[in-house]
Design a protein around this nucleic acid. Structure first.
Lengths: 219, 219
DNA sequence: CTCAAATGTGGACACCGTTCACATGCAGCA
DNA sequence: TGCTGCATGTGAACGGTGTCCACATTTGAG
């Protein structure tokens, strides 16, 4: 009702020839597609359709379908980072020292798994096979803190090493071990045998997994 | 040179109207495509092309592209099971008791990771999002032992519990924790930041990961 | 030998990503 | 103010994909 219903098409259709902000609109449509159906559901033509524009118009803003998907993926990674940050922010403020370090690591894992559970489409899109994330400083992939999910994990592990909860000698490469465990469980929950597990079962397994990592790293 | 070159087409082209064993031929072509390019490379039309047959012929043997892909996936899982079995078979025969149990668990993990590293296309195809594998007794997905990869892991964990290397009280659900860790690392190696890591680095991380799981589970 | 079922073919459809030539509106400069 | 160049959107088309339909051929059972 906000715009004059000049044409009764699905998208009200702009009255101007120019769209105004097609780049953002296409990205938003792509994100919505990814949210609903994962990376393979990000269809360029469907995005243009939702934007009320001809298919080719997309090529003025993204050089290819892959580039649109990459932009959607960056957004998904950013959302994941924010989910982790939210969990970190929820740590009881009285925690200090080693207890804080452990709570931090747990928050990263729980935030990661929670996001995977509640936004499976975006999560799968975030890890659709493309370029590495680790040393990537692309701002579009970070949360409010300016860190991407991998860097948030690294920070949590730094805290662990600082409080001798993991041997500083073996600090190197540990993010890969911790990430493996958490990412693997996320996969099992989304696409694997845990797909039909209850939220309670998933929560229990998540906690057990994080304890396994904690204990397994403290050698 | 083996067949009379009646038509100089890429595939020598059969002389009979009937193909003989198109089902197997299409499956083999699909497997080859998956090996080379992962699940998205399994193109139905390309498989028929390689079989020297019209696209529609495939529909006499597979009801859809998804069904062909599922058959390829089953084969990939079977190959994975065999890779694990090979690693188990290579355990020094003098190992007994707890040492055998630990070697068994390690063999499952190493077999899994080795397969992922050497057959990334098939590995990704094996875990392209579809139905669960855990309680699946489909023979096409098993190795020579008749067990699928998940069941092989379960067996290794049974041995661990038997020798008190993991508390029998907490045996339930432990396959998910162990699998998470190993599968997650496989992902990082294939599609993630470890994609360009050297074989030596990967081997080191693999061993460290398995030690983490072993220690983390022994609580 | 007949005939129905199994198997492969040809043609078509809708959908996808992508490209080319063209139309249009805006912005900056005269 | 008016003109002009450029960015932006359009239309038609191409090759590729999965899939369906009607048809042709071969095979095997009675």
């Amino acid at each position: 009702m906000s715009k004059p219903a000049k044409t009764p098409k699905p998208t009200p259709a702009r009255t101007t020839f120019r769209h105004g902000d097609l780049h953002r609109t296409l990205l938003a449509a792509g994100i919505e597609l990814a949210r609903a159906g994962g990376p393979t559901a990000v269809i360029l033509r469907e995005a243009t359709r939702r934007a009320g524009v001809a298919p080719n118009a997309a090529y003025r803003h993204f050089s290819s379908h892959a580039e649109l998907l990459a932009a959607v993926r960056a957004h998904a990674l950013s959302q994941l980072a924010r989910a982790i940050e939210a969990e970190i922010a929820a740590i009881p403020p009285r925690r200090r020292g080693a207890a804080l370090a452990r709570a931090h690591l747990r928050a990263v894992g729980i935030g990661y798994l929670t996001f995977a559970l509640h936004q499976p489409g975006l999560f799968r899109t975030a890890f659709t096979n493309t370029q590495p994330v680790a040393g990537d400083s692309d701002k579009a992939k970070t949360g409010a803190s300016g860190l991407n999910p991998f860097q948030l994990l690294g920070h949590a592990l730094d805290l662990m090493a600082l409080h001798r909860l993991l041997p500083p000698r073996r600090r190197a490469g540990v993010e890969y071990l911790a990430w493996s465990a958490v990412h693997g469980l996320a996969f099992l929950i989304i696409d694997g045998p845990l797909h039909h597990a209850s939220p309670a079962e998933i929560a229990t397994l998540s906690e057990r997994l994080i304890l396994m990592v904690e204990k397994g790293l403290s050698s």
